[in-house]
């Protein structure tokens, strides 16, 4: 096997490892939702190719309001779904859409776009 080939294989393997780590590797912990005057745990979530922040920490038994703001026109992200709370919302571009619910059980819940490609995590403590 020539040197070029060995080099190619090393680069290939490195790329594969890099892709796996980048997309599936450990992530940093999320943002904590703040309590507002209305008594809700509120968080502003930017929708643009993904959710920012994409991990939000709230407390159980406290009502939660997530304000989604979608700043892109691609139709992939036009809805957000909290399947565990049976909530969903259409997110028109450039508008802030509140989604309210009451997490009663601690645990980790997902919120996704309608196709499950964009993901965010809700950690209920």
């Amino acid at each position: 096997m020539s040197g070029t080939n060995i080099l190619a294989m090393v680069i290939g393997l490195a790329l594969i490892g890099g892709i796996a780590w980048f997309f599936w590797g450990p992530r940093k912990s999320g943002a904590r939702a703040a309590v507002t005057s209305s008594g809700y745990k509120e968080a502003m979530i930017l929708v643009k190719g993904g959710y920012t922040p994409d991990v939000v920490v709230v407390q159980h038994g406290k009502p939660v309001r997530f304000n989604f703001r979608r700043e892109e026109t691609v139709t992939c992200s036009e809805m957000v779904i909290f399947n565990d709370f049976a909530k969903s919302a259409h997110l028109p571009t450039g508008e802030t859409v509140p989604v309210e619910f009451l997490p009663e059980q601690p645990g980790e819940y997902e919120f996704t776009c309608q196709m499950g490609m964009l993901r965010g995590k809700l950690i209920v403590e």
């Binding site: 980048f22 997309f23 992530r27 190719g49 993904g50 920012t52 892109e72 691609v74 490609m117 964009l118």
Partner: peptide, 18 residues
């Protein structure tokens, strides 16, 4: 849109069709 879509997703360490 493929490039902006890719870039936005990469920022979240996610990947999609774009």
């Amino acid at each position: 849109h493929y490039f902006t879509g890719m870039w936005q997703a990469l920022k979240h360490r996610q990947a999609n069709m774009y």
